[in-house]
Design a protein around this nucleic acid. Structure first.
Lengths: 218, 218
DNA sequence: TGTAATGTTTACCAATCGGTCAAATTATCA
DNA sequence: TGATAATTTGACCGATTGGTAAACATTACA
């Protein structure tokens, strides 16, 4: 008799790992486009090339699939921000953060859309992670930025809104990809649009955060 | 006998107008959170306080509701960009554009989310509008910005990505509201967050677009 | 007032939804 | 090999989906 997945022993066989991978890959395809409510197990099953009951053998509910997917993606998604180094040069730190986030928007657009969908729906499945680990990480990095401003290395600014603006501008190229392509038109919507975006955003954030000459310095 | 809505004469009674308004208001509530696929007519009917067949008397299908909603919202949504004036002062034009977009994110977050949902799903219902009227409007305003850069009024930059970045940063406060609130925490997530955002974004874009001193001017 | 058009609702439909079950198939290994 | 456990599937369930039909209620107006 088949053992329900949740009660299984901790050790997972290769085939289990492969199948779960296969399912989550398909689930990412579907959830990232239609959101949780708009996605169906049948859709995921078809993309995964498996029967619906077979999916439900590995993940007992649709929510379990979504949850597993979010958990896995959340970790890697926050990696770039963790790399933010207090000891580094602010300018190059910000520059490389923008670069990395843009690369992720280019290489992992589905992951970006998965989160965007979740946020739009009010984050019913990840609100705890937002208020917990995410807030903690951002608080920490905001403090780093604040030391930079206090040391006069970058212009005085709200560190939280700085982070928000980097998030939004970079993820925009994943989440609003259709719009970006449509507006740029066929001639400029090629692969080069990420390079163009990188150039613009680096200029914007680097120059926008340069310390301004004080009217009266003495 | 009831006449199907599509075949009705052009003149709409007050009650028709009121009911359609009431339905679209409810539809905005639902579609903006769950997207097209994730929303149900029953949900909209409940929010609107009407029976499902009654909704379908005014809009024959779920798609008709969505389409009517998009059409109505799209117009007002693009208003701020239209106000972009070539004759005006670039700095104040950009500043007030950011202000207006932020006000819209604050006052009409559902409209913002409705579009965001549509974009995430690949804009299956509005792709024509994107490639047509939207692209045309952005092209026009990009040309305005280009004249500013050529006149040396603002730093040289890609006008399209400038517009994208203003869109993304401002709409972020509507679309990712949950995340913003969670990260800011209870103490800073009050109504003041829009003022903080405005201050930061104005600084970022104004300073980031200031003409830089050329190393060798002569 | 009467009557025809407009508006609303109850009951219902076929299709699809998330999920279960038991039988069938395949892998594991003594 | 055989037997046991793991995996896969077709058939199916009740609930929900988008949408319809027709009876009923209300309004507009001559």
């Amino acid at each position: 008799m088949a053992i329900p997945r949740a009660a299984r022993t901790q050790r997972r066989t290769r085939i289990q790992e492969a199948k779960e991978e296969q399912i989550l890959e398909a689930a990412l395809d579907v959830f990232s486009v239609s959101g949780f409510r708009g996605s169906t197990i049948d859709q995921i099953a078809e993309v995964a090339g498996m029967s619906k009951p077979n999916l439900l053998y590995y993940f007992r509910t649709k929510e379990a699939m979504h949850r597993a997917l979010i958990d896995r993606v959340l970790f890697t998604w926050l990696e770039p921000l963790k790399a933010f180094d207090a000891e580094g040069n602010p300018e190059s730190e910000i520059r490389s953060y923008i670069r990395r986030k843009l690369e992720m928007a280019r290489d992992f657009p589905r992951e970006s859309r998965l989160f965007a969908n979740e946020m739009l729906q009010g984050a019913p499945h990840v609100e705890d992670e937002l208020k917990g680990p995410l807030k903690q990480l951002v608080d920490e990095k905001a403090e780093v930025i604040r030391t930079w401003t206090k040391a006069g290395k970058i212009a005085k600014c709200d560190p939280y809104h700085l982070i928000f603006s980097i998030w939004s501008t970079t993820q925009h190229y994943a989440d609003f990809d259709v719009q970006v392509r449509a507006v740029l038109g066929q001639e400029h919507a090629g692969a080069g649009r990420f390079e163009d975006a990188a150039r613009f955003l680096e200029q914007l954030f680097i120059d926008g955060l340069k310390v301004k000459p004080v009217p009266d310095a003495s």
